[in-house]
Amino acid sequence: MVKPSVLLYVALYKPYDVLSQFTGEVGQRTLGEIDLPQGVYAAGRLDKDSEGLLLLSNDGPFIDRLIHPKNGHPRSYLVQVERVPDDDTLDQLRKGVTIKGYRTKPCKVELLKSEPELPPRTPPIRERKNIPTAWLRISLTEGKNRQVRRMTAAVGFPTLRLVRESIGKLTLGNLLPGEWKMVSTDDIL
């Protein structure tokens, strides 16, 4: 594999309902609809129904280092859940829960006192008048498939909206869905 002459690192606010890849099935929205620099690809994934910070790069060794489970770089998510979890439930999440036969590693979980300032989601989440919602900040050092959604479901609080706000030191900042900016490795690790 030939190393690119210019290494690129891109922080993108991946919109809801967009795959974390450049190709998809007919009718699927992909990163191909966003005018990104040529030759970059996603460092890790965000599910189609999740949004927020996605790092893209053409630096394969750096991506491998960033996403390899042994390195345990923190990733933080803003998570809107159905109903308001109590302290015992939050402690369950912090200690780790069993999902699909796997025990998640301990993580940081905070119940936010107010709704975070985020751009509206299109389409908006389904609202149910008689069921309150709460926002959590969950910080993980691992990234199993759909892990945050499975964790909140396992303790009885389904995820309604999921926004990744940081990877390592890199934060979403003021980016809006579909916007991106160039960053450096020093911004990330």
Score class of each variant (00 low, 15 high):
143 G>S: 02
166 S>K: 07
184 S>W: 10
34 I>S: 00
18 V>M: 13
147 Q>W: 10
40 V>D: 09
75 R>L: 06
118 L>H: 02
41 Y>N: 08
77 Y>R: 03
54 L>I: 09
72 G>V: 11
3 K>F: 13
80 Q>D: 05
54 L>F: 03
40 V>Q: 13
178 G>A: 08
24 G>C: 10
161 R>E: 03
3 K>W: 15
57 S>H: 05
94 R>P: 03
174 N>A: 15
58 N>H: 07
8 L>P: 06
177 P>N: 11
150 R>I: 14
86 D>W: 05
65 R>M: 14
164 R>V: 02
126 R>C: 14
157 F>S: 01
126 R>N: 14
139 S>T: 15
66 L>Y: 07
175 L>P: 01
11 A>C: 12
52 G>P: 02
106 P>D: 01
116 P>N: 02
188 I>S: 00
52 G>A: 01
45 R>G: 07
62 F>R: 15
48 K>Y: 12
160 L>S: 12
97 V>C: 04
61 P>I: 06
53 L>P: 12
110 E>L: 10
67 I>P: 11
28 Q>T: 04
6 V>R: 12
144 K>C: 05
58 N>S: 08
188 I>C: 03
160 L>M: 10
170 L>T: 00
147 Q>M: 01
81 V>I: 11
57 S>Y: 03
171 T>I: 11
27 G>R: 03
156 G>K: 02
103 R>V: 15
43 A>M: 11
130 N>D: 15
110 E>S: 13
181 K>R: 12
162 L>E: 09
138 I>L: 00
17 D>V: 13
174 N>I: 15
158 P>Q: 04
45 R>K: 02
91 D>T: 13
44 G>D: 09
25 E>C: 00
148 V>L: 00
158 P>V: 08
30 T>R: 13
35 D>T: 00
